[in-house]
Simulated assay, not measured.
Amino acid sequence: MNIVSDLAEGRRILAEAIGAAKRLVLFTGAGVSTESGIPDFRSPGGLWSRMRPITFQDFVASEAARLEDWRRRFHLMAEFEAAIPNAGHRAMARLVGSGKAIALITQNIDGLHERSGVPEDRLIRLHGTGTHASCLDCHERMEIAEAEAAIAATGQSPRCPACGGLIKCAVVSFGQAMPEAEMTRAEAASRAADLFVAAGSSLQVHPAAGLPVAARRAGARLLIVNRDETALDSLADRVLRGPIGRLFDPSDDAGRDGAP
């Protein structure tokens, strides 16, 4: 493992590795979006330090848990809508759009990769999305604003107008099964990569954290780009420490005081 904390050196290493790659796979976690003002979950002051997560089993079993989950979702949705894709999001979107990256695998639910221009066929959402909801039974889609209006009108959690099933925000909650199709796509992309770049993730959450391992075992180079130490630093070819947007996009220095 080689930890690089110098911004200029980190940029050089990342640019050279991406330039040489034929099958680049990008993997992102919450640290990519903190630079857009969206708090992460695990850090001190993050969401989970302030409130206990609501499990999938609690959501299904309890109306009180459903209403509390929805209250939190509406708050998060307001944060997502106010946020703007940052330099890291935009740089990754360019890599996907140019064909350099064969896939972008994300743990994020905020919709910022989509808004930055990453096409649907190259985006793999491991943990779903917080930008809409769906029925747990028939999978009918419902917009978050519709769910909010339904709760305001009835005082009860929303039900599917098509089948009467429970409507839930389309995120993967604790205790809920991972989406099989997305995991299959992510595993295939990871094994196909010759360069796997993990950015903004603590790499602690499984099975997602197994993807960099699978890529490495299949022969890919592994770069980890993160502000803090991760669970897989010892496995990486290089670990680049620093602001993700500025490492991916030197133009993000514009207007920053004291930027190198």
Rank of each mutant, 00 (worst) to 15 (best):
E9P: 00
G19N: 01
R23S: 14
A65G: 11
L26Q: 10
I54S: 10
R42G: 07
L7D: 00
S36A: 15
E35S: 11
M51D: 13
S33N: 07
K22S: 14
I38P: 06
T34L: 04
G37E: 08
S49T: 15
G37Y: 05
A30I: 08
P44M: 10
I13G: 03
A17Q: 05
A64R: 13
S36Q: 07
M51H: 12
I13R: 11
R42T: 11
F41I: 05
I54Y: 06
A65D: 15
R11G: 02
A21F: 05
L26I: 15
G31M: 12
R12I: 03
T55S: 15
D6E: 14
E16I: 09
S5M: 02
T55W: 06
F27S: 12
V25H: 05
S5A: 14
M51K: 14
P39K: 03
M51L: 07
R11M: 02
L67W: 12
G46Y: 06
A15Q: 12
P53K: 12
R66K: 14
R11V: 06
A8L: 10
E35R: 04
V4K: 00
A8P: 01
G31F: 09
L24R: 05
S36G: 12
G37Q: 03
S5Q: 09
V60D: 07
W48E: 08
W48N: 13
L26H: 10
T55C: 09
A21T: 12
T28W: 04
R52L: 10
E35K: 01
G31V: 15
A64S: 12
R12N: 03
S62T: 01
A17E: 11
F27N: 07
F56W: 13
R12W: 00
G37R: 01
V25P: 06
R50T: 06
R23M: 02
E16S: 08
A8I: 12
I13Q: 05
R11T: 07
S36Y: 09
A64D: 15
A61M: 03
I38A: 03
R66H: 06
G31C: 11
S49C: 04
L67D: 12
S33E: 10
S43Y: 11
V60R: 11
V4Q: 02
R12C: 01
G46C: 03
G45A: 05
K22D: 15
